[in-house]
Nucleic acid binder design. Structure first.
Ligand code: FES
Ligand code: FES
Lengths: 147, 147
DNA sequence: TCTAATCGTAACTACATAAGTTACATGAAA
DNA sequence: TTTCATGTAACTTATGTAGTTACGATTAGA
């Protein structure tokens, strides 16, 4: 399957919205992301449902952040997107009769469950404010070097 | 996306082959796995290329394990399958110009690289012999309980 | 040698899901 | 009323495993 890049997309969009003065339109965001305005609306619409962003129609409308960057974690964003599966690999049969397959599933599940816990743990600890701060660091760094 | 269950499949097949006396045919394995003989050949063929199994044609032919179970790790099997991607989630753009997207990618990459390291680490430590032993434990347990 | 069993492989379909696109309705501002 | 912008349905595209059909190649054994 094709990889799900929606988390990456919304993070990118949210940080640009944070840097921007007023609301940003789907059109503008789509150009930033190199995609289509409808894709932006579809994806950002999921964040609207959980109150992370708001949207306004009509002239001077667009998308705005509606939450404190320090309180929004990557885990919350992942949840807002519907908790898409992290892994592209899985068991052939989740509830096997066969003891052989049960042994196989147990070994794989043990590993993947631990990896998922690690991912969720780290996602819980990273906020949008952290990413914004990292961007600022990179920006300052570029100005220092770029003359 | 449909999940890749080939690692699960080959583990299941290999353990059944370990329990069996002679070679097992694609037909038999397919019935075990609840799939098609061609799928078995296609997948097991990848293991043959790295010498983990051998196949023989003709009557009394089929698949046999060609390695010491104690030396074959899940990591080697994953490699033999072509190192399919672990994650169903990824960056929108792997080499962005934009500093915002670089900050986003850095955060996600950091997390996913650590999770992948964990997976590979654990996969390196689990051998087919471990799974066979776990199966034996489960088998003994069932006999003890099942009357 | 003939037959049947098996693998090897090509080619096609089925499936799942995000992404991309087109089209149009809805609503708000000036 | 016009224009800008979102909301959303519907359809297409892309990607890769899984499933299926078909047939060729090889080998054991009668
Ligand atoms: S794309 Fe990050 S520049 Fe808007
Ligand atoms: S399926 Fe495990 S029983 Fe063969």
């Amino acid at each position: 399957m094709k990889r799900d890049s929606r988390l990456s997309s919304v993070l990118h969009a949210l940080l640009h919205m944070h840097e921007a003065d007023g609301p940003m339109t789907s059109e503008t965001l789509a150009k930033c992301l190199g995609t289509n305005p409808v894709v932006v609306r579809r994806t950002m619409g999921l964040l609207r449902k959980t109150g992370i962003v708001t949207s306004d129609r009509g002239p001077a409308g667009g998308w705005r952040i509606a939450a404190d960057l320090r309180t929004v974690t990557l885990r919350q964003l992942h949840a807002a997107l519907g908790e898409p599966a992290f892994f592209a690999i899985g068991n052939r049969n989740e509830t096997p009769e066969c003891l052989v397959e049960q042994a196989v599933n147990a070994a794989l599940d043990d590993t993947f469950i631990k990896a998922e816990a690690l991912l969720l743990e780290r996602f819980s600890q990273i906020t949008l404010a952290d990413l914004a701060a990292d961007f600022s660091r990179r920006y300052a760094e570029r100005r220092r070097q770029g003359a």
